[in-house]
Nucleic acid binder design. Structure first.
Lengths: 222, 222
DNA sequence: TACTATCGATAGTGAAACTATCCATGAATG
DNA sequence: CATTCATGGATAGTTTCACTATCGATAGTA
C-alpha cells in the first residue's frame, strides 16, 4: 500500500506519518521509485503501536523512540526487556530534592521494597517516581496516606503476579516484548481509570442510604 | 513573609510564583503598599499543592486551576468533590473513534461496570479513558489482556474501599476535599510506580533459578 | 493529457509553561 | 540618609514539543 492508504487505515494524517518516519518511530517504506514507496501491514501495526504509546500511554516522542528501539533490537533478551520497561517510566530531569521530605521519601521507598522482599535494582526509575510522590505527600502533611501505601504495594504485587503469568503464556520473546511494552504503557491508563471508577462507586455505596435509588447499582445520569 | 521567602521555602522561582498568581492558582498576597504584599503559610502550602498536582500528578495548569477552584468553593459538598475528582482525570479533546475497536471498547467498559455492580455516572471521564485504553489494546490484537482487566477491576475495587475508609477518618469536609484531590492525583503516580517495581520484582523472582544470587531478595546493582 | 498522489526536505505553527525585563516604589544597611 | 537590593504588576520573550504546511520534482490514474 501507499502512504495514503496507511493514513486512511490508521486514522493518522499523512504528514504525521511522515513525521514519525523522520523521527525514527516507523521505518521507511520499500522504495520503488524516486518518489514512490510501498508499505505493508507491519507499518500499519507500528503506527497503531506508536499511537497507543503516545496517546494512551502519554509517552513523549523521544521516549517512544527509545522504547521501540529496545523492543526492536535483535536478540531481544530479558535484560533488554527490562531496559524497555525502564524507558517506559516517565523521567525527571531535575535531581531529587535533598530536603527533609525528599530524604524521608527515599527512605520510605527503600524500607517498603525491603519489607516486601522485592528484588528491584536501584536504577529502576520507578523508585524515583515513587519517592517524588511520597515526598509531595509528606510536604503536604498527608502522612495518613502511608498505611494505604502498604495496601497498594501488596495489591500491585498480586497484580504483577497474574500479569507475569499471562505474559509467560506468550509463545516467543518477540511477542513477549510487545506485550511488555503495550501492557506497561496502556496498563497504567487502565489501572488509574479503574481506580477512578471504583472510587466513585465506593463513595456512592458508602454515602447512599440503603434502599435509596433504583437499586440496580447503576447511577448513569449523564 | 514576602515573595522572596515564599520562593526560598517552596523551592519555586519568584517569576513562577507570580505566574501562578496571574493564572489564579495561588491567591494574591495581602497588599500593604503600592509594591508590597504579605504572604502567609497558606500561600506556601498552596504552592506546594500546585507543585504536587502539576509535577507529580501531571496536571496542566488549566486542569489544576479547575481542580483548585472546586476544592476552594465554599460549602464543599459531595457533589463538588465528585466534580473535582472528574477534573483530575486527563481529558481527550477529540471525540472517541467510532471504529470497530472503539465501539467494542465502550461495550467492554459498560459490561465491566455492570458486572461489578458499580454505580458510576456516564459522565465520569474515566469511562472514556478506560475505553480508549481498551480500544488501543484491541487494535493491537492484545485481547489476552482482557482476563487481567477483571483482576484489575476487582483489585482497584478493594483499594477504593480502604481508601474511602481512610478518607472518612478526616474530621471535616475541607480536609476531606484536600485529601481527595491530593490522593487522587498523587495516588496515580504511587500506584503506577509500585506496579513497575512489582513487575520487576516478580519477573526476577520467576526467572531466577532458586538459590541463585545472594538470597536476600534485594538485587540493587545501580 | 489533465489531475491527483507521493517523495524527501525544509520551514512554519500553536499550545503550554514558564522566564525575563521594566519601572516605580519600598525595605534594608552602613 | 544615601545607596543598594527587593518587590509588585505589567508586558513581552523563550523554549520545547508535536505536529502541519509548503515545495518542486516525479509517478500513478481517469
Amino acid at each position: 500500500m501507499r502512504i495514503g492508504e496507511l493514513s486512511r487505515r490508521s486514522g493518522i494524517p499523512v504528514p504525521t506519518i511522515k513525521f514519525y518516519m523522520r523521527e525514527g518511530l516507523v521505518s521507511q517504506g520499500e522504495r520503488t521509485g524516486p518518489n514512490q514507496a510501498r508499505y505493508d501491514g507491519e507499518h500499519l501495526r507500528r503506527i497503531k503501536l506508536v499511537r497507543a504509546l503516545v496517546e494512551v500511554g502519554g509517552l513523549s516522542i523521544a521516549a517512544a523512540r527509545e522504547v521501540l528501539r529496545l523492543m526492536d533490537s535483535q536478540g531481544t533478551d530479558l535484560d533488554t526487556l527490562g531496559k524497555a520497561q525502564y524507558a517506559l517510566t516517565p523521567r525527571r530531569e531535575q535531581p531529587a530534592a535533598d530536603d527533609e521530605a525528599g530524604e524521608w521519601a527515599a527512605r520510605q521507598v527503600d524500607e517498603l521494597i525491603a519489607e516486601r522482599g522485592w528484588a528491584v535494582k536501584s536504577s529502576n526509575p520507578a523508585r524515583r517516581t515513587l519517592a517524588d510522590a511520597l515526598a509531595a505527600l509528606h510536604r503536604l502533611g498527608q502522612d495518613d496516606f502511608l498505611p494505604l501505601l502498604r495496601e497498594y504495594a501488596a495489591t500491585t504485587g498480586r497484580l504483577a503476579s497474574v500479569e507475569v503469568d499471562a505474559l509467560l503464556e506468550r509463545p516467543d520473546l518477540i511477542s513477549m516484548a510487545e506485550a511488555v511494552v503495550v501492557w506497561t504503557a496502556v496498563g497504567d491508563a487502565v489501572l488509574t481509570s479503574l481506580r477512578r471508577l471504583a472510587h466513585e462507586a465506593e463513595t456512592t455505596r458508602r454515602l447512599t442510604p440503603p434502599g435509596d435509588g433504583d437499586g440496580d447499582g447503576d447511577a448513569r445520569e449523564g
